[in-house]
Design a protein around this nucleic acid. Structure first.
Lengths: 348, 348
DNA sequence: CTGAAAGCGCTTACAG
DNA sequence: CTGAAAGCGCTTACAG
């Protein structure tokens, strides 16, 4: 396989590697290569199915045309969909992506960054978990193109692409109010993660705006079973709640465990909204309203910013870092149908 | 970034690049480098955070240590989980994976194979859709390591890793019989795909073994809506069916659309088994029994075979190609509880 | 309009 | 026990 090199093409076409290189890189016009030579070379390239060796090219140019993509777990739907879209965009621009899963292992994250660096990646796209700020800062100092997404780290001065979390929960809360619910609880986890704080803030601001009462459950997340218990107790102790907004999909999942128990009515009697959309929400009865993150737009923005930085290096241009927030959409389902309508239905 | 090269290490340590190369590649002992030189070099390597440039290494050795992974859509759960496990295995052995999604586009598949080849991948891991046999045969002829999975193509003489589809549906059918169901339908698609034929065969053999009557619906798949309609008509026309085995997850998904309609009882009155497990099946009421593919084992086998071929090239050893079938597991849920027990429950 | 040659950062046969 | 040097397949400044 892959026997034929640029030398072969030069020899067979009776030209030099220089000329062949110009032709295959589309610099023929610019370098004033004659039409006849161009077409001769192109013909031979096609005939011999010559494909430039990108390792050699990368070594010579100092550009691998590879971008590293580092996340918790590449098989999580959110990440694998982002990955897919980014890979598509990247391919269009001659880049390839190499992936890395961190798991819950800082050591592993460090290894992956090292591997990326050995592989001479031209840039990094990272959803950085807490506690890895140091590893990343030194990379950042070295001016390698980096784009972060999903998690916001205020102390890192770099490009971020995020869902507008505060607006998402604000919209969701307003939707509940609009439909007649006025005792709206917010279930989240105890955390310093900025995106979770933003979600909380969106809820609080909206509750305040409408002059309603806050009702927040912050769970110290351990495992699903414990979480289910905590949610259940909370709902039992707060019977007057008529709507619940879950701040993350695994919280919704935990709550939905109650559907399988005799306490099902704790949920079915209330309006429910989940952060992140998944199949189950549509199927369950009543189907559950959800906040859907703009995955394709996020992926698009990530790669666009990356491309900018990649090109900026060429032009040696410095660049402000930007924090881009993209709007989520609210998928309205039966679980949050207007309260009035709901009552009528129940009566009929 | 990445300024320091092997030359720098040689200069600073007062040795030659040869010696440094031996040390960083663990060949120091073998090459009888003195302990003092080894430790001096190792110290400097660590201090300067020297990382070998794998592009240069790859160019020199002719091994990129990259494996290409080509599937329909990298964001499909089955594929993204396989990808994750393979990536893990690969990283342990110094390999990285580059991914490619084919979509439904042959042209794109060809592009991806070309890109992989330009990138000098050392091997290919492919879930090949129909109609791309030719593209792959020429690669195969060139003796590049290739491992196929998920889809079996009898005309291709290469390594395959597959779920044992026939056994999976045979076991599922037997489970239904054991639990007292004796009018078991099989819903599949009209196709020549070997894995679907195997699933059908597993069902037919078991039905025959128990002396029962076959009842097969083959759907010419177009879109979900049409499929739902066909399934519904089939169930309406065959009221005596007491169990249904769905040959693929999208068929189950289509059927489950009926859960949202007044024809729900067409399903809830019957034992149901789905090929492929997904979240929804556990949640729906009654929860639905499923056939779960051994994803981790599949990924493990794929990479093991790949590694064998990768090493075989070194030793110039020829190798028989192997077709490995791995057993699926049946996740038993309420939908297939013993018929007797079910009736009692309904009465109580 | 075209080519000879240096050099990217490695590995490895060869020499001593 | 260690080093000088060739060469992997490209790109590109330089020369003509």
């Amino acid at each position: 396989m892959q026997k034929v090199s640029i030398k072969d093409i030069a020899r067979i076409s009776g030209t030099s590697v220089t000329t062949v290189s110009f032709v295959i890189n589309g610099k023929a016009k610019e370098k004033h290569i004659s039409e006849s030579v161009i077409s001769k070379i192109e013909k031979i390239v096609a005939e011999m199915a010559y494909k430039p060796n990108s390792l050699a090219r990368g070594l010579r140019t100092g550009k691998s045309k590879i971008v590293g993509f580092l996340v918790d777990d590449i098989s999580k739907p959110f990440f694998s969909e982002i990955a897919r879209h980014i890979d598509e965009k990247a391919s269009e621009h001659g880049y390839k992506i190499i992936f890395g899963s961190i798991g819950n292992d800082k050591e592993r994250a460090r290894d992956m960054l090292k591997i990326f660096s050995e592989r001479q990646v031209d840039g990094y796209i990272i959803a950085l978990p807490e506690g890895l700020e140091n590893e990343v800062s030194s990379l950042l100092d070295s001016k390698v193109p980096m784009v972060f997404f999903d998690r916001f780290l205020p102390e890192i001065n770099a490009d971020f692409v995020l869902t507008d979390n505060a607006k998402a929960t604000a919209d969701a809360t307003a939707h509940l109010v609009d439909n007649g619910f006025n005792n709206i609880a917010f279930i989240t986890i105890e955390t310093a993660q900025q995106q979770m704080l933003d979600r909380l803030e969106g809820y609080r601001n909206t509750i305040k705006r409408f002059g309603l009462k806050e009702n927040i459950l912050k769970i110290v997340y351990t495992d699903q079973k414990t979480t289910v218990g905590k949610i259940k107790s909370f709902l039992l102790e707060n019977k007057d709640i008529d709507a619940v907004l879950f701040a993350a999909n695994y919280l919704t999942m935990s709550a939905l465990q109650l559907f399988k128990t005799k306490d099902k009515s704790l949920l079915t009697s209330k309006a429910l909204i989940s952060f992140d959309d998944f199949e189950l929400l549509e199927f369950i009865s009543p189907s559950i309203t959800s906040i859907e993150q703009p995955i394709k737009a996020i992926a698009g923005q990530i790669f666009q910013l990356m491309l900018k930085r990649l090109d900026a290096k060429k032009n040696d241009g410095l660049q402000e870092s930007s924090v881009i927030k993209l709007p989520a959409s609210l998928i309205k389902r039966a679980s949050t149908a207007a309260k009035l309508a709901k009552k009528v239905k129940l009566v009929s």
